[in-house]
Amino acid sequence: MDVILSEAAPRTDLDLAIRVERVSHAFQTPAGTPVLALDDVSFDVPRGQFLALVGASGCGKTTILNMAAGLVQPVAGTVVVNGARVTRPSRRTGYMFARDGLLPWRSARRNIEVGLELRGVPVSERRATGSRLLDLVGLKAFGSSYPWQLSQGMRQRVALARTLAIDPDTLLMDEPFAALDAQTKLMLQTEFLRIWERDRKTVLFVTHDLAEAVALADRVIVLTCRPGRIQADIAIDLPRPRDPERIRFDHHYLRLSERVWQALKAGEAAS
């Protein structure tokens, strides 16, 4: 196993945002045979780190995310977020999916505000946050538009704003830009990095797009397939602020990409 720890300094639990400890998970296939999806996976995410999980589809990346979100309970092992073992969805955690999941009967603004509404935040405060986030994701003029009136990229911006509106400590992202065309994807990555680099929340980011992982993250964990195990843990020591559009031509970026790619290949060969 090719493990490179990204943090040399010893950490206390206070600095820890997420701890995945000896997690194993299995699924029942429709045919009835159990399949081992995750096999003894452990890793820590320090507060403020942007961690990307990469691996081929069906490697249990999303399962780890769902565990951190409290939507799935591991068969063995524990997932701790912000010092507490996760047993159900936390209101301090934001989760963003590949599909926007916008409520079609709510305008963009009301979709952004929905998380605050669920938390019982007063209307005036909600409106203020809604306006601020519409502005932040560049949709100032589209607050009263319904989802069907927005393009795919705009809808995903609304989804991003909705996730940020609740001001989460931790961001869980499951291929949030996967459903977008290449151009829109780059644009949203750039914008997301710009927003993220301001307050540096802890991010657990699942993707099968290697370029995306290296361009955005501080650290990339490569998972093998069936069962999911950690193949490599690679620090991405590219300077910030980063521009995902320009970084693609950077030499160091290319070297890191190659390392991630080789780890992926090795993982595929091993399984």
């Binding site: 979100a69 989760y95 999941g101």
Partner: peptide, 24 residues
């Protein structure tokens, strides 16, 4: 997808019903 998203956003069963299922 809507139910999952709203649950991840912290919706309780009651909120899911009134804000997702009924309008849907």
């Amino acid at each position: 997808e809507l139910v999952l998203t709203m649950r991840a956003l912290g919706a309780t069963d009651r909120q899911l019903f009134w804000k997702v299922m009924l309008p849907g």
